[in-house]
Each structure stands twice: as C-alpha cells, then as structure tokens.
C-alpha cells in the first residue's frame, strides 16, 4: 500500500507535538538518503542497512530526551547524519579488522528493484562498483563531504553540522574531492 510522501518541512513541528506518531514519517523521508550514503561509506549494503537501522534507533532515543522546543528547531537532514557518520565510523572500524570481502554482489542486490535505479544513468553494476572504488580512495573528510553533498544531496551548512567542520572547509573538501575523482583514472584507462 503506497503511503503519501510526508512533507519534510512539517516534520520538526510534528516531532515536537507527537514524537511517536511522527517518527515513522522521519524514517520514510530520510531512509533513502542515509542508506545511499551509508552504502558508499561502509562499502557494503548489509552494513548500510544496519547503519540505517542503528541511526534511526539512536535518533529516536535522542529525540525522547530533547525538550519539544529543541525538536521543533532541528534541521533533521544534517542532524541525522551527525549520528549516521558516527555509526558508519564504528562499523568501518569493526569491519577493517576483517579482510575486505566486498564484492559486486553485496553492493548490488539483484532481488531489490531499487538497485535498478542507478543503472538508468550509470552503465550497470560495473560502473557503480567503479565509483565506489574511486570514492573509497578519497581521504575520509573529502569522501564524507562528496558523498553527503552529491549522493545524499545535503546542503553545505547541513554537512558542516554533520561533520563538525566549518562551512568553508566543507566546501573546500567537496571541491577537492571532486577534482581528485576526476583525476583518478578508470580501470579501462589504466589497462588499455
């Protein structure tokens, strides 16, 4: 059953009035963005699912502690990513102790119709994997900034809030990250 898409603008006010009633809509509005970013930052869609789950669970617990006025003033996109980045970092730390078992199969779920979306613009699974590899090669601040700006679609001020870095620094991170991505040769260029 399709639910109407909730209006993101109304969410902070609704959270202030009725946290339990509005929280499902917070998940509906922000889950795709957090999932998309987490897939790039954790390099694994199972980890990304765990990141989404843990981010929203921690967000809810935090909102329970906040007074209504603070909930009403939240900028949810950046605020949720403050939590999500922390969850991603913890995941990544735990994961880096294991051998990297990332393969195409874990990045592209053939049974998930949503996995087809990127293929419309990108040249199939190989190119998705290629971009993941290129993003993974960026230094962490640039990777976070580029993913949040261009995959997730956050504003610079929201990225600044999420990463705890000044807006000017974030802009420079995104700019340098993009420059670097352009300069990293693709696999075909290296082998041909």
């Amino acid at each position: 059953m399709m639910q109407p898409t909730p209006n993101p603008e109304s969410l902070p006010g609704r959270l202030a009035d009725d946290l339990d009633g509005a929280f499902a809509d917070v998940v509906r509005v922000y889950q795709d963005g957090i999932y998309s970013g987490a897939v790039q930052l954790t390099r694994d869609r199972h980890d990304a699912e765990d990141v989404v789950q843990e981010t929203f669970v921690r967000a809810y617990r935090a909102l329970q502690r906040y007074p209504a006025r603070r909930r009403a003033e939240l900028r949810l996109g950046g605020w949720l990513w403050t939590i999500a980045l922390d969850v991603c970092r913890n995941r990544h730390r735990a994961r880096s102790r294991r051998p990297d078992e990332t393969t195409l199969a874990v990045l592209v779920d053939p049974s998930d119709p949503a996995a087809d979306d990127p293929a419309a613009v990108l040249d199939g699974a190989a190119e998705i994997e290629e971009w993941r590899r290129r993003l993974a090669d960026l230094p962490e601040p640039q990777r976070n900034a580029v993913v949040l700006r261009h995959v997730v679609g956050l504003g610079y001020d929201e990225i600044a809030a999420a990463t705890g870095r000044p807006v000017g620094t974030v802009k420079a991170d995104v700019h340098r990250g993009i420059r670097r991505l352009e300069r990293i040769p693709t696999v075909e260029e290296v082998t041909s």
Binding site: A114, P118, W131
Partner: peptide
C-alpha cells in the same frame, strides 16, 4: 553520476 548512486532503502 554521483547523484545516480542514490538508491532506495530496502
């Protein structure tokens, strides 16, 4: 191309 990496959560 980066924007096209956006996917829907399961």
């Amino acid at each position: 191309r980066l924007r096209a990496l956006r996917a829907r959560a399961p």
